[in-house]
Write a protein that binds this DNA or RNA. Sequence first.
DNA 1: TCAATAGAATTACCAGTAGTCAGTTTTTAT
DNA 2: ATAAAAACTGACTACTGGTAATTCTATTGA
Lengths: 225, 225
Amino acid sequence: MKTNSIRSIRRAELSKAAFEAVVLYGLRKATLEKVGRIAGVSKGVVLHHFKDKSSLLEAVFRRSNSVLSESVIELYRHADTPYERLWAIIIANFFKTIFNRKVCQAWVSLMSEVPHNEQCQRVEAANHTRIQSNLRYALKHFLNKTDTERTALHLGMLIDGIWARNGLQSAPVLSEKAISEMEYAILKMLPHDNKSIANHQEARLKIENIANIVLGSKAYKEKSF
Amino acid sequence: MKTNSIRSIRRAELSKAAFEAVVLYGLRKATLEKVGRIAGVSKGVVLHHFKDKSSLLEAVFRRSNSVLSESVIELYRHADTPYERLWAIIIANFFKTIFNRKVCQAWVSLMSEVPHNEQCQRVEAANHTRIQSNLRYALKHFLNKTDTERTALHLGMLIDGIWARNGLQSAPVLSEKAISEMEYAILKMLPHDNKSIANHQEARLKIENIANIVLGSKAYKEKSF
DNA sequence: TCAATAGAATTACCAGTAGTCAGTTTTTAT
DNA sequence: ATAAAAACTGACTACTGGTAATTCTATTGA
C-alpha cells in the first residue's frame, strides 16, 4: 500500500527528528513543536502520526535500538567462529559511527522513559534478551553452562555501563578505549592459552576489517543516526 | 541563622518530595505541582526555594547520590582490610533498603537529566571519581597499578550496570543476586588461592553483619529514601 | 512593647506545551 | 470522474514552568 508506506516514511522521519531533538535539547525539553520544526512540519503532523508523546518516544527508542542491533546482525553474518561472533558483538556496539557522545547522551536520556512506559519496557526486554542470546551463543564454546550465563550477563552489563559512562561523562570515551576495556574483561573471563589468544587476536582483526568495510559504507551510514 | 535553617529544611523536604514524584510519575511527568502536593504545599513554594525545575532536580540528584555514598562511607569506616573495604563498597551499593526497583527506576530517570544539566554533570563526575578512588584503594593490594585502574573502572561500571538493569527490567533484581554477580566478577578479576578465598569469605560475612546493624538501624533508615 | 523588616507562602498571571477536534486538502481505488 | 480514505491544518482547551505582586509570619532592635 502506498498510503501505508507514506505513513511509515513519515513516522521514520519524525522519529529521526525526535531523536535529533533529544540529542539537542534533552528529553525534558524536546517539545513536539521542536520535533516538528526539525522535520519541517507543524506540531499537528507529529500528533497525526503518533497518538501522543509517549508513543513518539517509544518509536525513537525502538529505532535507536534497532540501528544498533542491525549493525550487530550485519557483523554477525560475517562471523564464522565463536571468537569472531564475540568480537562482532563488541565491535558493532562500539563502532565509531555509532558510539559517540551525542548518541550515548540521547541513549541515556531515553533510558529514563523506560520505567514508566510499558511499550519501551517491552522493547528494552526484547533487546536485552537478544543481546544475551547472542552473547551466550558466542560464549558457550569457551565456558560451561553456568559460567556462560553469568559471563553473558556480565559482558552485557559492561557494554551498557560503557555506553552510560560515555553519555554521562563530560570527556568522551574513545571507541578504542571502550573496545580495549571489553578485551580486558574477556581475557579475564575466558580461559586462555597461547593458542586461544592468537585465535582471539586474529578474529578481532578480521571483524574490525569487515566492520570498516560494511558499517563504514555509505549505504549503511544513511540508515544510521 | 534560624531562617537559613528553615530554608535548608524546606529544601530537603522538597527534594525528598521531588524524588518521590519521580518515583511515582517518572521524570517527564513529575510536575512542580505534584511535587508541591506531595510535600503538602503549593507549587509556588517549590519555586520560592528552587530557582527552577533544573535546580530542583539537581538537588534531587545530589541527594540520592549522597544517600548512597553515605552508606558506603558508613561501612567503609568499619572495614580494616582491603577485602573488607572491597566488600564495604559492594554491600553498601546493594543493601536491601537502598537497592530496590523503585529507587533504581528513579535513579535511571534522573540519569537523563545529566547530559543537559551542567550541575548534575559535576555531581556525577565527583561521585564517579569518589567511587573509583574507593575501589582503587581497595584493589591496589591485590593488583599492579594498571590492573588496579582497569579493574576499578570495570567494577564501577558493573555496579552501574546492575543498578540500571534493576531500573529498566520489569522483574526486580534481588540484592543477593546482585552481590553474587559482583562476587563472581571479583573472583575472575583478582588473583586468588585457597587462603585468599577464605579471607575473602570471612571479610564478606563481617561486612554483611555490620551492614545489617548499621544500615539497618532506625536512625539510618530515616536518612534514607 | 511594638513598629520595621526579612523571609515564607499564596495568588494571579503569562508564555509555552500536550493533546483534541472540526474542517480542508490531497491521495487512492474503483 | 468520483467516492472514500488518508494527510494535513489551525483553532481551541487544560495544564505546566516560571514571574511578580501581595499577603502572612516571625524575629529583632529601639
